[in-house]
């Protein structure tokens, strides 16, 4: 029983991490119509930042702001320098541009830090098991990640519902032509969305580093799972990404724990079922 509870919590925590990555993916697509295959590499960079900063200073706490600030800067740079020219280009061009970025990011990582696997220690304060119900206890760090991700998700919903730039982004994601109609500053919206999306992916990487360790090409698996999240969750909406991520996180974790023969396949079967049943996604407004 406590085993199942732990797996469920693991699934929720993993799903929330997926939400941080896929919310940026879906917003960047919704607002700018651009496909960023390198989004998984940004996650990888965040994890390596955690490895370097935590290794250098002995503290993961410094790594988190470093990942966020680095993400904002890198996102702004990419948007201004490259992506801006590609919003109206064909999918083929976008795919290849971002594929090139993957190659360059991975090669840069290899040149700077090599190709080894690394583990990142959990901060000492959180390296304990928290007693839950009865004899069931759960990793304090996983719990902290879960709470932090929930907090970020809550902050994102608030920002989108309550702030000017947030409502502008929502309008832009739902109807891109609204931006011009409302006289909004499209350039600024694009910059903010891209920078925030990048920062979220890199923060997710930094948070995940102690749990998943740090290794070359680690972004690929996460990228593809996040694609499944977006397809299952539905088109261009934050809420769709949220529920989709939770669902995929739980299904993936439970299937790996209890259906080892189906290991990696369960989420794809789920995606196939969703495509048959509701091709626009489970949580999309019809």
């Amino acid at each position: 029983m406590s085993g199942l509870a732990a797996q469920l919590l693991n699934g929720v925590q993993y799903g929330l991490l997926l939400f941080l990555i896929s919310s940026g993916l879906t917003l960047i697509f919704g607002v700018m119509g651009v496909i960023n295959l390198a989004h998984g590499s940004l996650f990888m960079i965040g994890a390596y930042i955690a490895f370097v900063v935590a290794g250098g200073t002995g503290s993961l706490w410094l790594a988190l702001p470093a990942a966020v600030l680095g993400g904002l800067a890198l996102g702004a740079l990419l948007e201004r320098g490259l992506f801006r020219r590609f919003y109206h280009r064909e999918h083929l061009d976008q795919v290849l541009l971002t594929f090139a970025l993957i190659l360059l990011f991975e090669e840069g990582r290899s040149i700077l830090l090599g190709n080894d696997f690394h583990s990142v220690p959990v901060p000492a304060v959180l390296d304990v098991a928290v007693p839950m119900v009865g004899d069931f206890s759960y990793s304090a760090y996983r719990l902290a990640v879960l709470v932090a991700c929930l907090g970020i998700a809550g902050a994102m919903f608030l920002a989108i519902e309550r702030t000017r730039i947030g409502s502008a982004i929502r309008a832009a994601a739902e109807k891109p032509e609204m931006v011009d109609l409302l006289g909004l500053d499209a350039r600024r919206i694009h910059l903010v969305v891209f920078a925030v999306g990048t920062a979220l992916a890199m923060l997710a990487g930094a948070l995940a580093a102690p749990l998943h360790s740090v290794y070359p090409n680690m972004g690929h698996g996460f990228l593809i799972i996040c694609f499944v999240v977006v397809v299952v969750g539905g088109v261009g909406s934050i809420a769709g990404a949220f529920w989709g991520a939770l669902l995929i996180g739980v299904v993936d974790t439970l299937s790996k724990a209890y259906l080892p023969f189906a290991a990696g396949l369960a989420v794809y079967v789920l995606m196939a079922a969703v495509l048959l049943w509701r091709p626009t996604g489970l949580f999309a407004r019809s």
Binding site: I224, V231, L275
Partner: peptide, 25 residues
């Protein structure tokens, strides 16, 4: 048959995901 129920960006993602599924097989 499944992926063509989607278009554009989603077609890309679905083909990639199913391709990865066959990779795992």
């Amino acid at each position: 048959a499944l992926a063509l129920r989607t278009r554009g960006f989603f077609f890309l993602m679905t083909t990639l995901a199913f391709g990865q599924m066959l990779f795992f097989v």
